[in-house]
Amino acid sequence: MFKRYIKDRCYIIAEIGGNFTTFEQAKRLIDEAAACGVDAVKLQTYQAETLSSPEAIFDMENTGVVSQYELFKKYEINEALHRAVFEYADTKGLDWFSSPSHQNDVDMLERCDVGAHKIGSDDAVNLPFLRYVASKGKPIILSTGMCTLDEVVESVNAMYAEGNEKIILLHAITSYPTHPENVNLRAMQTLANTFPQLDIGYSDHTLSPVACLCAVAMGARVIERHFTYDKQADGPDHMLSADPSEMKWLVEAIRSYEIMRGSGIKRPANSEQKTRKNNRKSIVAARDICAGERISEVDIAIKRPGYGIAPKYFSQIIGRSVAQDMPAGSVLNWDSLT
Rank of each mutant, 00 (worst) to 15 (best):
D123H: 11
P100L: 03
N104A: 15
K118R: 02
A328N: 00
S135G: 13
T45W: 07
N193Q: 13
E224Y: 12
I77V: 11
S296Q: 13
G329L: 04
A158H: 07
I141W: 08
R9S: 14
A285K: 05
A172S: 11
K274E: 09
D335W: 03
D107G: 06
K277S: 11
G308P: 04
I259A: 06
A116K: 11
V41P: 08
V183I: 15
H238I: 10
E151R: 07
L130G: 10
A158L: 05
T275F: 00
K118C: 02
V284I: 14
D107F: 08
V322R: 05
D31Q: 08
A301L: 11
I223H: 07
I259N: 03
F58H: 08
A323V: 07
L94P: 06
L127S: 02
C36S: 15
S256P: 00
M1D: 14
H226L: 10
N78T: 02
K138N: 05
K274G: 00
D59N: 14
N78A: 06
N184M: 10
K138V: 05
M247R: 06
N333G: 04
D234W: 02
T63A: 00
G201I: 03
K281V: 09
V216S: 07
N19W: 05
S330G: 09
F58Q: 05
I300N: 08
F58L: 13
W249A: 04
E297Q: 08
I309Q: 05
W96F: 15
S256E: 13
V125H: 01
E87G: 01
M159N: 03
E110K: 12
L185R: 13
L332P: 02
G308K: 09
A172P: 00
A233C: 04
R267E: 14
I254N: 07
K92I: 03
Y257K: 00
T338S: 10
I141G: 04
L127C: 03
K138F: 05
D288Y: 02
V331W: 04
G17H: 07
V210W: 11
I6L: 15
F227N: 12
S321M: 10
V125I: 14
L130N: 07
M247E: 12
V152E: 06
